[in-house]
Design a protein around this nucleic acid. Structure first.
Lengths: 352, 352
DNA sequence: TAGCTTTATGACACCGGTTTCCACTATAAG
DNA sequence: CTTATAGTGGAAACCGGTGTCATAAAGCTA
């Protein structure tokens, strides 16, 4: 016997007790059809005001909330947006999540996270599996994996909408939120020139990354424009981790003559350079100025606080999410974000 | 006219072109009923081997993947687990996400994140809204919000399964993954005693947090057991942020006599103390030893590298996720994780 | 007042799975 | 040669929404 069926007519019409109320319950109790309830929920304009209020009263009374799975099935789309990333920087990833959450807070969307391993040979299979299984509304791609064109092609193939965050023109405007890393680094170099530096080292990002390339180009632009010293012992490679920054710092600081300033392509590596300087007894900022990139939390928390380029990730994330879920016109607008230089204590005029 | 209907019989039986294949397509092409296909998908044992292989061939051929929304509707449960947190420490949150992802990687579950604001008066409404809207399979609660009993009660009320991470006995075994912070801090204090410290300061966590309370109790246990100096100028409060650690460090280091060692209730605050010491020209570790808690990335990246208590968040997250999605027996087992002391360069014998 | 448009609502099929219930096989036992 | 008994597979209902289309009532014109 079904629950409630034998409940000798109370005021309540019979309905199962232990499960959430459905659209049918609302329809029955307010004496209208399912479709009308659906219209109320979806704010359909062609609806009598009195009917609407009656149904809304029942909805409030019952505490009815539409079942998202049923909705998703009927609409042939769900309200989940995915975040695919392989970014090793926790603060960066969390800032991004924060921006996305800002954008979807008052909507019915939710954020599904999916870290991946860039180096895995099964990367594309993993992502394909994920997208096929979850059938998301769309996905956001965070650097550096956002630079992977095969991944974007996969999304297209699977009919999954996507937006990439990039440091360069990676895709058409509808699928891209862009920043101007090259120009931002050039500004940072101008700042170092102004302080009086002539010998500036570079800790580059990993090869094959657009962000790394753009930041390096910005460095070279600055070197050329200001007539800085050049040479192989002024450039070291890293892979955006603290450890690689430490190693690169060691290499650059063991050169003779030493650079008076070093630009690191992200804050983590800048922290590594700082670490290397300390190990050698080189005083920062007196004997060495350091400039980073990103302005993640670590930049303000190390000593001395780091001069860095603020990469506006939270607004960018917000824009990316809005582009993904927003209406068509707005989504195809270009989105270009500018980075500011944040001057802190790690950069001063050279002592020599 | 429906797509494909007029396609004068090719080899393909007619099906709509632009949408993913459904269970009906598979059933039609393999000449069996939907139910049989469903049995194949769900690995039902009572099924003829030949039939199974035939259906599987069609599935592979079509690239059929079951629609998760339809499945969720029919099964009355989805495969989304939520992570609710208000933890300001990015590395901590990301490590937690990593642990959860480890546990669900090969399953059909996905992780939905939901940061909340602990101080918002609408906290409970926000969470209620989220849970009602998404109808998750279950949620994981990360400290410090995991210590909020009203939140756990809300989950129970809404019929949403949950697992809390805690530094103490917050809930029954089925809903808890626990760590022994008090004991771990006592060990750290024993280590400082062994080094020869007698005057050890405490940067406490925020009031009302169990983790803060447990860590403070561990400190007091150590002080009492080893006969350390006591006094109000040896204890300062913080709220787990870098800035609060900085302020607390200033307070403790301006005392006279100064502590020779400071235990900070998390790494962020330990970094703040370090910062304060530097501002005052106090050499760490020569003039001051510092011990933190958590062993997040920052601990190894500041200079000097921080001695700290490793809070095993990744395994704990893995266990929490397993408890949430695992079968009943395993879920009700107690889960207690022990923290280790990681000795690094920030702690040495006192110079005075 | 007939005829036409507009507005408000309902009946019913459908989305793509799972579950219930029943029928049809074989094979073995009587 | 029946008849019980698994083993196997299908028809139809169901999960909880949305879309299409029909229809009744009301408003407007002539």
């Amino acid at each position: 016997m079904r629950d409630g069926q034998i409940a000798l007519q109370g005021v309540q019409v019979n309905r199962k007790k232990d499960s959430a109320p459905t659209i049918n319950d609302v329809a029955r109790l307010s004496g209208v059809s399912k479709k009308t309830v659906s219209r109320v929920i979806n704010r359909s304009p062609l609806l009598n005001q009195a009917t609407r209020e009656r149904v809304e009263a029942v909805i409030a009374d019952l505490g009815y909330v539409p079942n998202p799975q049923a909705r998703a099935l009927a609409l042939r789309r769900n309200f989940l947006i995915g975040l695919i990333h392989d970014n090793p920087n926790a603060q960066m990833v969390l800032n991004f999540q924060e921006g996305v959450l800002d954008a979807i807070r008052e909507t019915e969307f939710a954020l599904v996270v999916r870290p991946v391993d860039r180096h895995s040979p099964r990367l594309l299979d993993d992502v394909r599996n994920f997208l096929e299984r979850q059938r998301l509304y769309g996905v956001l791609l965070l650097p550096p994996i956002s630079e992977n064109d095969a991944l974007a092609a996969l999304c297209t193939e699977l009919g999954c909408n996507y937006v990439r965050m990039g440091s360069a023109k990676l895709d058409d405007d509808a699928h891209l939120v862009e920043s101007n890393d090259r120009q931002a680094v050039t500004h940072a170099m101008a700042y170092l020139a102004e302080l009086g530096h002539r010998r500036v080292g570079l800790v580059a990002g990993p090869e094959g990354f657009r962000s790394a390339r753009e930041r390096m180009l910005g460095y070279h632009d600055g070197v050329a424009h200001h007539g800085f010293d050049t040479g192989q012992d002024l450039i070291a490679g890293g892979n955006y981790t603290f450890e690689s920054g430490l190693a690169a710092g060691v290499r650059l600081l063991d050169a003779n003559p030493r650079p008076t300033a070093i630009f690191a392509s992200n804050d983590e590596m800048a922290a590594g350079v700082l670490h290397a300087a300390r190990q050698r007894g080189i005083d920062v900022p007196r004997d060495l100025s350091i400039v980073g990139f990103d302005d993640t939390a670590i930049a303000a928390h190390i000593w001395p606080p780091l001069t860095t380029v603020r990469w506006p990730i939270v607004p960018m994330a917000r824009a990316a999410a809005a582009k993904l879920i927003g209406p068509g016109e707005e989504a195809s607008q270009p989105s270009l974000f500018l980075s500011d230089l944040i001057r802190r204590a790690s950069s001063v005029p050279p002592s020599r």
